[in-house]
């Protein structure tokens, strides 16, 4: 069996997920390739969060298949997804504000030295690696000893991305990384998304903001009420079309009509 040279890192085929009798996701197909950014767009309640949970191993899909390197996989837990190289940067970032940057960077995967009862956290190495990894992403942290709480939102997002890349993420899932940020900060984060992409990571960028998605994305999956409104390559769709599609297209036209002043 030979694999085609362009086997996607991660592929979804007709994936669906129900919560009881509610269909949260249905018939979703998309691909994530190394060195590409796949954007998942949708309004609130479109099924973005459910999709993240399926990708990151929190939920198992009820229908359809997940293919990693062309092989079908199922993840029983976030840990399994992580071990397979799928890292998720959640909206709350999984960082502890009162802890130092380097402690956060290695949280849950601390390097150790020594053995037996003297096995200890290799703080020197942790600090070095943190500084080096952040520098490699072009993030200038003044002091890795400062608490994460003193960083700006964009900086914290960047640290989370750098952390995922350092721990060998091949697929990086970003949950609304720009939603709480101002224009300038969002730009900074998008630059790090591009950095991660250039280092060969397959990025899944989940957002409701087409202005953020369009410049950095290579492929766009638009969701509405758990269903796909289509998957587009960048060449096939302009920003305005993307905005229109996201806002519900025909629905928006109808709303505009409804809101018109009678006799105006």
């Amino acid at each position: 069996m030979t694999r085609p040279p362009t086997t996607p890192l991660l592929e979804l085929r007709d994936v669906g997920k129900d919560y009881g009798s509610v269909t949260a996701l249905d018939g979703i197909s998309t691909t994530v390739r190394a060195g590409e950014v796949t954007c998942v767009l949708g309004d609130n309640g479109a099924g973005k969060s459910t999709l993240i949970k399926v990708l990151s191993g929190v939920h198992r899909p009820d229908r359809g298949r997940l293919l990693l390197d062309g092989e079908p996989v199922t993840f029983g837990s976030p840990r399994e997804a992580l071990d397979a190289g799928i890292a998720t940067v959640f909206q709350d970032l999984a960082m502890i504000p009162l802890m130092a940057v380097w402690r956060n960077f290695f949280l849950g995967a601390e390097p150790t030295k020594g053995w037996g009862p003297f096995r200890r956290f290799d703080a020197g190495r942790a600090k070095d690696v943190t500084r080096r990894e952040l520098a490699a992403m072009g993030i200038d942290i003044r002091d890795p000893d400062q608490p994460v709480g003193t960083l700006s939102g964009g900086e914290r997002q960047s640290v989370a991305i750098a952390r995922a890349v350092h721990f060998g993420a091949r697929v990086l899932i970003l949950d609304e990384p720009t939603s709480a940020l101002g224009v300038k900060q969002a730009g900074v984060v998008l630059r790090y998304v591009a950095q991660a992409r250039d280092r060969g990571v397959g990025v899944v960028l989940i957002t409701h903001n087409p202005h953020h998605a369009h410049p950095v994305g290579d492929r766009f999956l638009v969701l509405n009420r758990g269903r796909s409104l289509g998957e587009f390559a960048k060449a096939d769709i302009g920003r305005d079309e993307l905005i229109r599609l996201m806002a519900g297209g025909a629905e928006l036209d109808a709303l505009a009509h409804e809101l018109e002043r009678p006799g105006g």
Binding site: F90, D92, A94, L107
Partner: peptide
């Protein structure tokens, strides 16, 4: 919750 998310 955050701690558990990163595997603590």
């Amino acid at each position: 919750v955050a701690a558990r998310n990163v595997g603590v």
